Each structure stands twice: as C-alpha cells, then as structure tokens.
Amino acid sequence: MGKLLLFRFVGASIYLSVAFLMGCSSQEKSQTAQPLASVPVVSLSAGQVTTYHDYPASIEAVANVQIRPQVNGYIDRVFVDEGAFVRKGQTLFKINELPYREQLNAAIAGMHFAEASVINAQIEADKLKPLVENKVISDYQLKIADATLQMAKARLEQSQTAIASAKINLGYTTIEAPVNGYIGRLAKKQGTLVGPSDPAPLTELSDVSQLHVYFSLSEQDFINFKAQYPGNSLGEKIRQVPEVDLVLSDESIFIQKGKVDMFDGQFDKNTGSITVRASFRNQQGLLRSGNTGKVRLGLSHRDAVLVPAAATIEIQDKVFVFALDKKNKLSRQAIRIAGKSGTSYLVKEGLKAGDRIVMSGIDHLQEGQTIQPEMLVTYNNPRSALK
C-alpha cells in the first residue's frame, strides 16, 4: 500500500513538471515578437489631371442628298456605279428626252406664231393711226387695233415663257450630282419608269469630306462643361474646347481629331440631355455616314488625387483601399471614383494628398493589421484618366 502511494506521488510530480516546462515553453514563444509583414506602400499626392468621358455618338455626312427625278420618263442610261465617288456637276442619270424636246419644239413654234401675230397687229394699228389723225375714221377702231396689238404681245410673252419651261424640263432629263460625294445603292436601273412622285429616290449621294458627329450631354455634364472653360457666352466657351477624339466601334481612334462647334438650342425633355456636334475632317473617305462611335471629351481636374488600380479592391460595387495610420496600422477605406484609366483611379472622395495606402498584395492583408511599410514613394500618375 505504501509503495502504491509513493508511485502515484512520483507520477504526479513528473506530470506537473512536464506541464510546467510546456507552459514555460509556450510563454517563451508568445513572448517572442513575430516579425511584421513587409508591404509596399505609396504616399499619395495631388496634381492636375484630365479625365476623358466617352459619349455614344452618331456619324453623319456634311451633306446627304437624295437624288430624285423632276420629270417623268424612262431611264435611258446610268452613268455611275454604286459606291463611286462623283464630283459636283457630273452626270448620274439620263431620262428619255424625246417627249420634252418635242415640247420645246412646240413652244418654239408657238413663239413664232405669236411673233407673226404681233407683226400683223402692229401693221393694222399703224394703218389706222393716220386715218384717225386726219379724222377719216373715229379713234374707236384704232383703240381696238391697239388692244389687239397688246394681246398679241402678251401671247408672245406667254410663248417665250413656255419655251423657258420646256427648256427646264428638257434639262431635268439629265440628272447631275449637286455636290461631291459617294453614290449609294442604285434603286432604279436602266429602263425603269421614274417620276417625281416616286416614294424612293434614284440613289443617295453623301459628301463625307467632313463628318458631323452628334452626341448628348446630361444636364450635370453640361454644367461641368460650362464651368470648365472661360468665356462670357457659350460660343466663347466652345472656342476654348480642345480637340476631341472619335473612338470607333472597334475601340480604335480615328486618325483625325475633331472640334466641338455646336450645342442644340434646348434640352430634350424626354431624356434630360442636350445634343452636341463635333466636326471631323474625312478627306480620305475612311468613314461613311451612318458609322457609329464615341466622342471622347476631356475634363480637367485641379488638385486631383490618383491611386493605382492595383491598390484597390472591389466589394459589392464599392472600391476599397488599405490605408495606414501613423502607427502603420491598416484600415480598409472606401473611396469614390471620379474617373479611371488602365493603371489609375481618380479619387473623388475618401482619400487626400499625403495619405498612405498599400500598393499591392492587399488580398493577404486584414483590417487592423500592423505592417512594416517598404518602398515608400510619392504616387503621382502623370497620365490622364478615362471615365
């Protein structure tokens, strides 16, 4: 019995010793400082930045002309092909002119008849005049002769007008290009009967040497635009707007830059926006009327703060960064974005110049964590931002 008690006492002593040693070991480990994570950090600065906003736009030629016949007749010849470039005055179509040439000949014949009538009436009046002066006859007959002469002269003028009208109609049988441009589809072919009342034109002619690109600004964007540029009137402000880019449907930039040159007279009540026009030169005809794209309009920002896109994280449609306090303790900071490019965000709210944020590796960091900052630099991206 005594041996058993001794054995239990020795075992308990050994257990307590082991537990004490393990506790001391754990305490030593807890008392040993864990090394802080070394994380790249940037210090933000403010500067002037230009953001660019892309506005959906429609592209129209400076002139889109419907080519329509002004007289009835069959198309004798088509002198152009679809898509061809034509110059002002070049012949496009020829309508059968025979009926209109005969109308001209008839009008000329009517004029000759009217001329003969004038001569005959003049002779009659001249014959009666001395008889009246000598009181051989009364002046009544002379008055009738003078009236007949005036009627003959009026018929002559009518015949001359008929000739002019016939010449105009005859000229309409030759259809010429009113402007330089490109021919559209030819809806009517040779031998087709055409006339002014036809619902569809013969073709369309587009002068694309200059393009009018229309886009819309919201009321807020319009207010920002007016505040951006100096001038006492909208016209003066428009003249201060720098050249704009045309972004095509494949996201490429049109080779020519454009100029904003017109604001609509009023806002659209349905959309709450105002139409703006920018004009682009297109001498090579690379674009055609009906193309689509986007106008890239710039807006300058003073004292703007930029952050690297890699330093942000999006959670439920909100953008966050990890900011550092004076003790290098992390806090997740929500920011509002005013614009962005491929590498930077323009901060609207949430950060200011001088704030420090983590540059990269934010996926492995936690709220409240203390870090060891490295590569402490000032971040000021010189490139413009794209909204």
Rank of each mutant, 00 (worst) to 15 (best):
S13E: 01
L16Y: 11
L21H: 02
M22P: 00
G23R: 11
S25N: 11
E28V: 12
K29N: 09
T32F: 11
T32V: 11
A33W: 00
P35L: 12
P35H: 06
L36N: 07
A37K: 15
P40A: 05
V41G: 01
V42T: 08
L44D: 04
L44C: 06
Q48Y: 06
Q48I: 10
Y52M: 07
A61M: 02
Q66E: 15
Q66M: 10
I67G: 02
I67E: 02
P69M: 02
V71Y: 01
G73S: 07
G73H: 02
Y74C: 00
I75S: 07
R77G: 00
V78E: 01
F85W: 08
G89Y: 07
T91Y: 00
K94P: 00
L98T: 12
P99N: 10
Y100F: 14
Q103T: 07
I108F: 08
I108G: 03
A109R: 09
E115M: 12
S117R: 12
V118A: 14
Q122C: 01
I123G: 06
I123C: 01
E124V: 04
K127R: 15
L128V: 05
L128K: 12
P130E: 05
L131I: 07
I144C: 01
A147D: 07
A152S: 09
E157K: 14
S159N: 10
A162N: 15
I163R: 12
G171A: 13
T174C: 10
I175V: 13
E176I: 13
Y182L: 05
G184M: 04
A187S: 14
A187H: 09
L193A: 14
S197E: 14
P199R: 11
E204V: 15
Y214G: 00
F215V: 06
S218Y: 02
D221M: 08
N224D: 15
F225H: 06
Q228R: 09
Y229Q: 08
L234Y: 12
L234D: 14
K237W: 08
Q240C: 12
V241E: 03
L246F: 11
D250N: 15
E251S: 13
F254W: 14
I255H: 10
Q266L: 06
D268P: 07
K269N: 13
G272H: 09
S273M: 14
I274E: 04
A278E: 01
S279G: 01
R281E: 12
L286P: 01
L287P: 06
G290A: 09
T292Q: 13
K294H: 14
G298A: 15
G298T: 04
G298M: 05
V305G: 03
V305H: 02
P308M: 04
P308Y: 03
A309Q: 12
A309M: 10
A311F: 02
I313C: 04
D317M: 07
D325M: 05
N328F: 07
K329M: 13
K329F: 02
L330K: 04
L330P: 06
S331D: 10
I335H: 01
I335S: 01
G339Q: 05
G350E: 08
L351V: 07
A353W: 00
G354S: 08
D355Y: 07
I357L: 10
V358T: 03
G368D: 06
I371G: 03
T378C: 00
Y379P: 07
N381P: 03
S384N: 15
A385C: 12
L386W: 06
